[in-house]
Structures are given as C-alpha cells and as structure tokens.
C-alpha cells in the first residue's frame, strides 16, 4: 500500500508482574492510511491503550516492547534512537489522553504548555535552526513571540473563547471540555500527520463529548491528518471512523471497514459488543451483556482467548489459536467458527 502512513506489524508488549508475564499486547498488526480515521475498540484491559503507547514508545516500567515493528512512513520507530523518536513525538505523531485534568501539568500555564510544544518542533515554520542562532537572546525572544502567536491561533482554532486571557491561566481554571480543547491544541500545534486519541471523550459530559468529537473531525479534515481513536464506545466509532479494529485480551480479533463491522460482524465478540449497546428501537428488551470476565493477561486460556465467554466455542477452539484471515475485501477476522 503506497498510501500507508503507519504499519504495525506483530507488535508485542509484555508486562512483568508479580503474578507472571502479562501479555498486554500480543502480536497486533494493523495499518493506517494517510488521512484515515481508525478506531480501536475493546473492553478495558484489552490492550488498546498499551498498543497506542507502544507506537509512541511510551510504555512505562514494568512494561516492555518485546517484539514486532512499528513502521511510520516506512521507518521502524522501534529501532530509532531516543533522540530520533523525540523528533517524531509531537511533531509527526501526537497523542491526547483520556483525562485532560491529569494530563495537563498543574503548575504550568496553559499558554506555556502550548508554546512548549511549538518551540520544541519550531512550530513547523519557525526559523533559527542553527544552535548558535538560538542562543541569541533577540532571536529567542522573536521565536518565543512567534510561538506565542501560533499558540493563540491554536487556542482560537479549537474554539476557546478569550484566548489571550486564558493563555495565562492554569489547567484547574478550565472546565473539562475546555481542557480537552487545550490538549487538542497542544497535540495539533505542530500539524502532526497522525493523532492518537486515547479515549478522548470518556471523561466528559455527553453534550461536551459531541462537541469535542465534532471539533476533532473538523480539524482532521482541515489538516488532512490520520487519527487512531481508541475507545470502548461503538457509537463514537460509528460517527468518527473509517475503519475499525476490535481487540480482545491483547489480540486483534476483527478488523474492517466501519460499515462491515457494525452491520456484518463476523466475530462473536464483536457481535456481543454490538448487542450490548442499548438501542432506542428495542427499548423494551433488556440490555444484553457478554457473560463472564476478561481473562487475566498472565493466565490466558489455551487456543482462542475468547472461548471462555464465547457462545459458539467448541473443542477445536481450545486447541487451535485462530489466525487472522480475510473474510471479504479488507475485512479480517480471527475465529475458527466464523471461517467455517
């Protein structure tokens, strides 16, 4: 695929815990095209957040990326040096997190935090590349001013009223939705090619959620940016994504275009997730849930990981690890029952 921006190949991220090795991400592969919006869905603990952090190499101790490749514009991010990866972070790939209050630094003003991001990568257009010139106080001053202007623009662009004044305020003085806008402003300040949004709307009120999604969509189009949206909310996915990846217990169980996944799910887990969404048309029916619990990642069942909760599982499922295979154009599923 010539249009491919990011390709994750057989990514493995394990955590060493007191109870043994937890395989949080265990052989995940997928790709994202330029300008494409890809959703990763699954229950909490399925490895979707760890996958996102692994792409940026932000996995904290005791987690460790043990295998695979993350090809960004054809280059493997996992084999880059710490310095090289730093130039990708923020500039090429940006990330936003679930809880904007804990994600923004409480002791720095919002303006400082946006300016920092811009200055780090010269905001894309700022001059003074030579280190000597950067020592010049006048040049520094000008760079700082330019970065400040650019930050103001960003604040306006994400729809924060009275940006001049709010630049000097601290995160705790903002409302939840406004904080998330600030975070988006920081993330998009250097016009990244890819934005990874880890549950960006989960911590927000429903009405604010819609506004933030709308904003993200608008900016995505404007900047022609690819987005990986991590969520457990299939409604958000339906609204936002072109393609969906469903994860379960550290593995991709199904991947395909959003319509295929939502209207023609092949994996029993995807089907279960869809059934558990309350719908207006059948409000008299009780909400269905998937029975059982997500297995512990350091103590996984043999064969298919979903079989302990799967209504269709049989003997074969315990013996064979189902491969991810094409079922139709661009639609893959990892289930022995679905293939048969």
């Amino acid at each position: 695929m010539g249009n491919c921006l990011l390709e994750v190949k057989d990514l493995k991220t394990y955590f060493n815990t007191d109870n043994g090795v937890a395989k949080a991400v265990d052989g995940v592969s997928f790709s994202v095209a330029h300008g494409q919006a890809v959703g990763i869905v699954g229950e909490s603990g399925c490895g979707k957040s760890v996958t996102a952090r692994s792409i940026m190499r932000l996995v904290d101790y005791p987690g460790k990326i043990v295998g695979g490749q993350v090809l960004f514009r054809g280059e493997d991010l996992l084999s880059k040096s710490e310095k090289e990866i730093r130039h990708v972070r923020g500039k090429e790939i940006a990330m936003i997190f679930q809880d904007p209050l804990s994600t923004l630094n409480p002791v720095l003003t919002v303006g400082d935090q946006i300016v920092e991001a811009i200055e780090l990568h010269h905001g894309g257009s700022l001059p003074a590349d030579s280190p000597l010139e950067r020592l010049n106080p006048f040049v520094r001053r000008r760079m700082r001013d330019e970065a400040w202007q650019r930050a103001l623009q960003m604040m306006e662009q994400v729809g924060i009223p009275a940006p001049e004044q709010r630049m000097n305020e601290y995160p705790h003085q903002f409302s939840g939705g406004m904080r998330q806008r600030v975070m988006i402003a920081i993330a998009l300040s250097c016009s990244p090619a890819l934005l990874i949004a880890d549950e960006p709307t989960t911590a927000l009120d429903v009405t604010v959620q819609a506004q933030i999604l709308e904003l993200m969509k608008e900016l995505q189009r404007k900047l022609n940016m690819a987005v990986i949206l991590i969520t457990h909310d299939l409604g958000v996915v339906a609204e936002f994504c072109d393609r969906v990846i469903v994860m379960y217990a550290g593995k991709v169980v199904e991947a395909g275009p959003v319509d295929n996944i939502l209207f023609d799910p092949q994996h029993p887990y995807t089907a279960g997730l869809l059934k558990s969404i309350p719908r207006i048309e059948d409000r008299h029916r009780p909400i269905q849930t998937i029975p059982g619990m997500v297995p512990e990642l350091y103590n996984l069942p043999s064969g298919c990981r979903f079989r302990t909760r799967c209504p269709m599982a049989d003997v074969r499922c315990a013996e064979e690890d189902p491969p991810l295979v094409d079922v139709s154009h661009d639609h893959q599923v990892s289930c022995l029952q679905a293939i048969a």
Binding site: R86, M95, L108, E116, A117
Partner: peptide
C-alpha cells in the same frame, strides 16, 4: 502522572521532562 507521559508524547527531552514537568 499522566502529564509526565503527555510531556514525553510532546517530544520533550527527558531532562526537561524530569526537571520542568
């Protein structure tokens, strides 16, 4: 804390992450 990870995600140098953030 998340803001330390976020600072890293912004591409801030490790030294600055530790001291400034």
């Amino acid at each position: 804390q998340d803001y330390v990870t976020f600072a890293r995600a912004k591409g801030v140098k490790e030294m600055a992450v530790v001291i400034k953030h």
